[in-house]
Design a protein around this nucleic acid. Sequence first.
DNA 1: TTAATATATAAGCATATAATTATATGGTGA
DNA 2: TCACCATATAATTATATGCTTATATATTAA
Lengths: 115, 115
Amino acid sequence: MKEDKSQDLKETAILLKLLGDKTRLSMVNMLAEQECCVCEFVEIFQMSQPAISQHLRKLRDIGIVKEQRKGQWVVYSLNTESEYYLLTKDILNHVPSERDKFVWLEKNGLRIICN
Amino acid sequence: MKEDKSQDLKETAILLKLLGDKTRLSMVNMLAEQECCVCEFVEIFQMSQPAISQHLRKLRDIGIVKEQRKGQWVVYSLNTESEYYLLTKDILNHVPSERDKFVWLEKNGLRIICN
DNA sequence: TTAATATATAAGCATATAATTATATGGTGA
DNA sequence: TCACCATATAATTATATGCTTATATATTAA
């Protein structure tokens, strides 16, 4: 793991602004729990697929999440190598778990990832 | 001190967005070190007084800073009673100290607060 | 009271952001 | 190959944000 290079105020502000959106914060919070694919997020957030994609792009651009193609799906996960990983985890400690969202996905047969 | 009630995702996102501005993040970071009055911030950030005032208002509205009038000056400080205090401190741990800004103020005879 | 200083608020403007719809790209399986 | 599904990108639009200028308020001191 890279060391905590978030030690730059301007950069940190940019990260905080990115996490300062309830959809993106929730996404990152979920990914801290389990990986998740785009179509699952679409179901969870009741939002258009492009909107989800654009949020994920921002998170990916700053490096706190990473993507991996699995067949026709693109699976996102937290990037533990990110220079913002430690800060992100510290923030998520102040946010309630969203494990229930994965339960809901499974209940409704919408879970893609088999782990 | 109130307990950590930041445990609400939407509210937390709002806080993060507020801290996701380099001026406000820096303000809070400075206030974690020492209290500071409006005119000092104006000097530090080379920004108009209304701009500074508006940033401080946002921080005050969400409760992470508080104000206290001292004569003709209004002195701001971190609100340790805030429900976001713990989260804020955790975030500031990832931001470098700005003690030098206070030193600069003193050097230039711009320091108001005498503690 | 009046002038000077510090701060807050209001209005206006330029830019940023987040959503939508339409379209493009990429993988799967017949 | 083609049809289908998942995802990404582009263009557009509505709204939010941050700054500026102008003005109001509050305190101090003469």
